[in-house]
């Protein structure tokens, strides 16, 4: 940095920089600015393509009741599936992270971590294949049992799906997909717990679980929350696994998790409808994509804020 000699200096001068340096610095800076432009472009082009759906007569929009009425049930389905996934994945992910960082023999830990990371590498369409062919059929007896015995709870009101293509199955598949994300971030913060904290707890005569409760979990809490939020963002935007697994009908809003009639999600609805859509239909789908973009943006910004706040704290330690 030959630049910035603040004006306080009586002898401050313009920096001398050679041509190569100016070119290279300018190019790399340009690449950074390009990223800003791309992101602005994503928002801009989506708005341009979504706009006709808002101005068109309500009857022309698919569904016939305007763009808001079209997107609202999809938004509900998206949120339901993602929250379900989060509820399933977070406890498991924290357990896995604890196992790898605190319980597993140190020599095994890295290999076990790699095994869990493999889950993150599998393409989402393959999860769809697995969900529909392996998981869903194995869950149908369970759904029938739930409908019979716990049917009084609205979540399990039934009638139970005979194919297993339900919101519950989607939640499980999405849960498996986001588990490695949540677990990776939890693992990272658990590893950063200062060994002084841990040893202090152990020196007081704590058992391993007490040490974890006193030292590891409080230290890692915001990491877990941030990781869970990142996982939530991923689950919200997941497309093909949902498109393949879920048996969805348009315009439904229901908390019934095990029936054959489910609300669709924004992303999977786009994937299913887009290839056959034209005209205002495309604009409506882009408008729903815009809604998804805004939603995931909000979740991710919040998640980053939580994770980054923690890293500032840990810097002081």
């Amino acid at each position: 940095m030959t630049s910035t000699t603040p004006s306080t200096g009586s002898t401050s001068r313009a920096p001398v920089r050679r041509l190569g340096d100016r070119l290279f610095a300018g190019t790399s800076r340009g690449a950074g600015i390009l990223i800003v432009l791309i992101l602005a472009g994503v928002a801009g082009f989506l708005i341009v393509q979504a706009a006709p759906a808002f101005t068109a007569p309500r009857a022309d929009v698919p569904g016939g009741h305007g763009v808001v009425a079209y997107i609202a049930p999809l938004l509900f389905g998206t949120a339901l599936a993602a929250v379900l996934a989060l509820l399933i994945a977070t406890p498991l992910a924290v357990g896995v992270a604890l196992f790898i960082t605190q319980f597993a023999p140190r020599r095994l830990a890295q290999g076990l971590g790699y095994l869990v990371d493999l889950l993150a590498a599998i393409p989402s369409i393959v999860y769809g294949f697995w969900g529909i062919a392996w998981l869903a059929p194995r869950l149908t007896p369970f759904y029938a049992w739930l409908a019979d015995h716990l049917g009084f709870i609205p979540l399990f009101a039934g009638p139970a799906s005979v194919t297993g293509k339900t919101m519950f199955t989607v939640g499980l598949v999405l849960g498996v997909m986001i588990l490695p994300i949540v677990s990776a971030i939890s693992r990272e913060v658990f590893l950063q717990v200062p060994s002084l904290h841990r040893e202090a707890a152990l020196a007081l005569g704590a058992t391993r679980w007490e040490m974890i409760r006193m030292a590891v979990l409080p230290y890692g809490r915001s990491g877990i929350i941030g990781g869970a939020m990142l996982g939530l963002g991923r689950a919200l935007g997941e497309t093909l696994a949902v498109a393949i697994v879920l048996s969805a009908s348009g315009g439904i809003v229901t908390f019934n998790l095990i029936s054959p009639d489910n609300p669709s999600t924004i992303a999977s609805n786009i994937a299913l409808q887009f290839p056959e859509s034209t005209g205002i239909g495309v604009n409506t789908l882009v408008a729903s994509g815009l809604a998804l973009f805004v939603l995931t943006l909000a979740v991710n910004v919040l998640a980053r804020a939580i994770v980054n706040r923690r890293s500032q704290f840990s810097g002081a330690n």
Binding site: I35, V36, I38, L39, G41, V42, F45, L46, V48, Q49, S124, L230, G233, R234, L236, G237, E238, T239, A267, I270, A271, L285, V286, G289, L292, F293, T296, L297, V299, N300, V301, A303, R304
Partner: peptide, 20 residues
């Protein structure tokens, strides 16, 4: 913004390219 971009759903990226 790179952090934000990491979280863009893949279908939204597709819609962007289509719109462009």
């Amino acid at each position: 913004l790179v952090d934000v971009m990491t979280g863009i759903p893949s279908i939204v990226a597709g819609l962007f390219a289509y719109a462009l």
